[in-house]
Design a protein around this nucleic acid. Structure first.
Length: 343
DNA sequence: TATGCGTGGAC
DNA sequence: TGTCCAAGCAT
């Protein structure tokens, strides 16, 4: 692809973005001189990792209303942040969010660093997020490459190599378009195009401002890009959860270890999840089986059987919480099991 | 480089 | 129903 072709594609995309940019809570209008608060850009980028804009938006609004600055967030209680993140998934993000806010508060005096290199050292900030914040918040010409950009590049150039091994090549191709001109709008426009036009399925090539230069479009099979390696089969696991109620509207929860699945989150008392776990109630009580819920995680599917009893155990590890609050503070798999137990 | 890590919507 | 997928990161 020649330099002139690159320039024509850039121009076409920016024109399209000027006319059709999405309005999002964390975004300023295209070309707007006043840049969005780096704190808000960073917050949105963390929440948007592997997460749709529709899902992230209410959490973004809640977090920024409750903790308007990075210093406010740095001073928050861990449990409050984890509970506020409940339902959004990938809970390591919430732990890293807090760790990062405290790094910025302590080491940078509450002011976000403005270079890709420094951003990359922050907890939970990887190559994508560092580039995105550098470009969107600070106007730096960074090579911002996410799943959208990879897909757009794979189609523009009809890249035959499969993901994930094609990633370095796709990043190199994306780098051909990076420029000092409108460095903040370029990646946002490219990602908007990927989300709305150059979609994974049923791309809207008839509306695409880049179709004139798209190799996959010329071939007639844009949807077949990017090529992907086959995924491993998802195993099935079983487990039991024990809902102990005190008879006064509260329920016993545990705080899960910081690392691993649902790390740092509240959870129900229960067994390990495996192929055929023993039914092993943790306490003597008159347990009643309330039903089984299914929940699908990224890498396994779980059938979790809920058991319910009324009683009291004097155990300092237990967190007794109002049932309504528990439903709001638990990750979804436990929320579903608790709902079943209380039904 | 491969794997572990959530959730809900689209089809 | 199942499958894919969404602004990835850490290890």
């Amino acid at each position: 692809m020649t330099a002139n072709e690159i320039k024509a594609l850039r121009s076409a995309l920016l024109d399209w973005y000027d006319a059709s940019a999405r309005t999002l809570p964390w975004r300023t209008e295209p070309g707007e001189a006043t840049r969005t608060d780096p704190y808000r850009v960073w917050m949105s980028e963390i929440m948007l990792q592997q997460t749709t804009t529709v899902h992230a938006a209410p959490y973004f609004n809640a977090f920024t209303a409750r903790w308007p600055t990075v210093s406010d967030l740095a001073a928050a209680e861990d449990a409050d942040v984890m509970a506020a993140w409940a339902g959004l998934g990938y809970y390591a993000r919430a732990r890293n969010l807090l760790a990062c806010a405290r790094m910025v508060a302590d080491e940078y005096d509450g002011v976000f660093p403005d270079t890709e290199e420094a951003l990359l050292k922050l907890k939970g900030v990887g190559s994508y997020t560092a580039a995105a914040v550098a470009a969107i918040a600070f106007g730096r010409p960074a090579n911002v490459v996410d799943g959208n950009v990879e897909r757009v590049m794979s189609r523009l150039f009809a890249v035959e190599a499969e993901l994930p091994s094609a990633r370095p090549e796709l990043k190199r191709l994306a780098g051909l378009f990076v420029s000092d001109h409108r460095p903040s709008d370029w990646p946002q426009g490219l990602m908007d195009l990927g989300a709305r036009i150059c979609r994974p399925k049923s791309p809207l090539c008839g509306e695409c401002p880049l179709s004139f230069g798209c190799a996959a479009y010329k071939q007639g099979d844009p949807q077949s890009y990017p090529r992907k390696a086959k995924k491993a089969e998802r195993p099935h696991r079983l487990g039991h959860a024990f809902v102990l109620r005190d008879g006064k509207g509260r329920v016993a929860l545990v705080t899960r270890p910081d690392k691993g699945l649902l790390g740092g989150m509240l959870g129900l008392i229960g067994s390990e999840w495996g192929g055929a776990p023993d039914y092993a109630p943790p306490f003597e009580a008159d347990w009643t089986e309330a039903g089984t819920i299914n929940h699908v995680f990224t890498h396994f599917s779980l059938d979790l059987t809920a058991h319910v009893a009324t009683g009291w155990v004097d155990d300092p590890a237990l967190v007794w919480m109002e049932e309504g609050e528990a439903l709001k503070s638990l990750p979804t798999v436990f929320r579903k099991a608790l709902e079943r137990a209380l039904a």
